[in-house]
């Protein structure tokens, strides 16, 4: 039996692993088979993570966190969780390969998953011009015209990154206000390949075998028009990845896992949550990392309490 199992390998999961490993809790990290390292694996330059004044590539940052966790004794498994047993003093995690791991505590840090536009042809044209990853697919749109949908940092980053390849980027945002940071907006606005279309909603994706255009509606005037684009990059945010704990842990109205105050304690004793899965607001690598620290310290405290209680019980019954 393990002390603690950490589910997730983004900044929250790996930071929790570093702290737990340094507390001699020899954590097991379930990193996922294809999404290990989390969202930063799909980004390029990270310029706002403290300690890297010249920036660092997202995948490099995550590899460093992984190495730092392993250096102190964390064990990492590249598989996916298929089921969880979280109530009771012993928690069990079953993986895609059939392995079952047990622990006294679980830290749940599964992050969030890309939100879809919810349009009829979105799934059909996914991979045929519709993409959620500019760094993966941008190079296939050389000399083409593409649209980026969204108004946050990831939309700005994708638009700016895509100008390396494409002739033109339409940045389409449903309002006039951006969630993105001023630095990212300024960079995108200064780029002559990027045209901002504000107050616009995408209502259809066109194309037989490949994307050939999108239909947009002006949210103020109601005017409809079609933009000829060969690529659509969707960056409209993400939803907390909670499907494995539905019915097991309490969630908030925003769909994140409910935690007790500033702690990482969920509705079940011995189960802690960290990172974007508990955060409807900030969703930064550094806030996720901080949240991972909180979870590791909370888990450590919980394990000490459980250990003391069992020792007291053993003494009493002796």
């Amino acid at each position: 039996m393990r002390h603690v199992i950490i589910i997730g390998s983004g900044p929250a999961g790996y930071t929790a692993a570093i702290y737990a490993a340094r507390a001699n809790l020899s954590p097991l990290v379930i990193a996922s088979s294809v999404e290990f390292g989390g969202e930063l694996m799909k980004t390029t330059e990270v310029e706002n993570f403290p300690g890297f004044p010249d920036g660092i590539m997202g995948p490099d940052l995550m590899t460093r966190m992984q190495q730092q966790a392993e250096k102190f004794g964390a064990e990492i498994v590249y598989d996916d969780v298929v089921s969880l047993e979280l109530d009771g003093p012993v928690k069990a995690v079953t993986l895609g390969n059939g392995d079952r791991h047990e622990a006294h505590a679980v830290i749940y840090a599964t992050g969030s998953a890309y939100r879809k536009l919810g349009l009829p042809d979105e799934d059909r044209l996914s991979g045929y011009g519709v993409s959620w990853c500019a760094t993966c697919d941008g190079a296939f749109f050389r000399q083409k015209t593409v649209a980026v949908i969204g108004g946050g940092d990831s939309a700005m980053e994708e638009a700016t990154f895509l100008t390396r390849f494409v002739d033109k980027v339409y940045l389409i945002h449903r309002s006039e206000n951006f969630r993105a940071s001023a630095a990212m907006i300024d960079r995108a606005k200064a780029d002559e390949k990027i045209e901002f279309i504000m107050n616009a909603r995408v209502d259809q994706i066109l194309g037989a075998d490949l994307v050939s255009g999108i239909g947009i509606v002006d949210t103020v005037t109601g005017e409809q028009r079609v933009l000829d684009v060969q690529g659509v990059f969707v960056a409209i945010g993400a939803d907390p990845r909670t499907h494995l704990v539905h019915g097991l842990l309490e969630l908030t109205e925003q769909g994140t896992i409910a935690v007790d105050g500033r702690s990482s304690r969920t509705s079940l004793p011995g189960v802690f949550a960290a990172g974007d899965v508990v955060d409807p607001t900030y969703k930064q690598a550094i806030t996720a990392a901080g949240s991972g620290t909180v979870a590791a310290l909370d888990a450590q405290h919980y394990l000490e309490t459980v250990h003391d209680a069992s020792r007291t019980a053993a003494t009493a019954s002796a």
């Binding site: 088979s33 294809v34 390292g37 694996m41 799909k42 995948p59 990853c133 760094t135 993966c136 190079a139």
Partner: peptide, 14 residues
């Protein structure tokens, strides 16, 4: 696949 594609590297051993 391509060298710069993270998801490609992830799926390759699978």
């Amino acid at each position: 696949w391509a060298e710069w594609c993270g998801p490609c590297r992830a799926v390759s051993p699978i």
